[in-house]
Amino acid sequence: MKRAAVMIAFAYFIAMGFAVTFPGIRPFNTIEPLVFGIPFVFAWVLSWVAGSTLVFFLLYRAYNE
């Protein structure tokens, strides 16, 4: 359980590192379509931040059962 959570967290944050910097961000670097009124690339970075809450929650549960 712990091991799996740590692996998922590692994978997520490495993926995030690529997704929010160049060149990984390039395919998502557009204004349209607006997501809830927000430019797409802005929503893209925001959703990586929001998603990290889930990953941290998983990690926390694995360590504090």
């Binding site: 204004i31 809830f36 009124g37 430019p39």
Partner: peptide, 19 residues
Amino acid sequence: GVGPMFEQIAAARPEMLTV
């Protein structure tokens, strides 16, 4: 609203909205 705001910025200064 937020949507109309970004639509207006996108029309006038699109270079501001992409990294």
